Simulated assay, not measured.
Amino acid sequence: MDLDGALPGKGGPTPEESLGARIREFRLTRRMSLRALATQAQTSPGFLSQLERGQVNASIGTLRKLAEGLGITLPDLFTDVDTSRPRVLRRAERPEIHASTLTSKYLLSQKPLRDLEVYAGEFLPGGDTGDPFTHGDSQEMLVVTAGTVILTLAGVEYPLDVGDSAEYRTSTPHAIRNTGEHPAAVLWIISPPTPDGAP
């Protein structure tokens, strides 16, 4: 042992320690307790604690359940992307989530998702998001950035003009449609990110 107490030849963190640190980072970002995440992943808080400290290995099945519980993908646990640095996303490089003749959706928040996820939606006249649906149980804010739309929340319709916004839980059935004569655009801001997809 060296004078500073470190083991000889000890370099950076081991792969197990790096993985554990990422799991812990995502868990704390989501404000989840060890017990809450362990329950979702069908494992014990003690095992999860050891995993976060890099003391044990987990099966791919357990890692997949942890990723689902955290609202991320399995590859997100292993990426070495430094999300602490500024990241610029050009309009032409936006990932398109869904496109139809009249509607386009784009992911603006870059993966791996951390504290929030942000989407841009563009609707030609008559465009919509389809039938009302839910995804997880997070806070969602809708901001109209161009045109007018009708937001449906739990069967109630809310006409929204440019500059208007609405907040609701993602567990509330919701949908948007453009009934105007001009294109419309919106932003969806969701926190924390939901595990089952875009708005």
Rank of each mutant, 00 (worst) to 15 (best):
D2L: 15
G5W: 02
G5Y: 04
L7W: 11
P8K: 10
G11Y: 10
G12L: 06
T14F: 13
T14Q: 13
T14N: 09
L19K: 00
L19S: 01
A21Y: 08
R22K: 15
R22N: 09
R22P: 04
R27Y: 07
L28T: 14
L28H: 11
T29A: 07
T29F: 01
S33M: 12
L37M: 07
A38V: 08
A41R: 01
P45M: 03
P45T: 04
L48T: 09
S49R: 06
S49W: 01
L51W: 00
L51D: 01
Q55A: 12
V56T: 15
S59L: 08
I60Y: 08
A67W: 05
A67R: 03
E68D: 12
E68R: 13
I72W: 02
P75D: 01
D80L: 12
R91Y: 14
A92E: 15
R94I: 03
A99D: 11
T103F: 08
S104Y: 08
L108P: 06
L108D: 06
Q110I: 13
L113S: 00
R114L: 13
E122G: 06
F123P: 00
L124Y: 03
P125E: 04
P125L: 05
D128E: 11
F133K: 11
H135S: 12
G136F: 04
T145E: 03
T145R: 04
T148C: 10
T148N: 13
I150S: 05
I150D: 05
L153P: 08
P159H: 04
L160K: 03
L160V: 02
L160F: 03
G163L: 08
D164W: 08
D164A: 15
R169H: 09
S171V: 01
H174R: 08
A175T: 09
E181F: 06
H182T: 14
H182F: 11
A185T: 09
L187V: 10
W188Y: 14
I189P: 00
I190N: 00
P193R: 03
P195H: 07
D196P: 04
G197R: 10
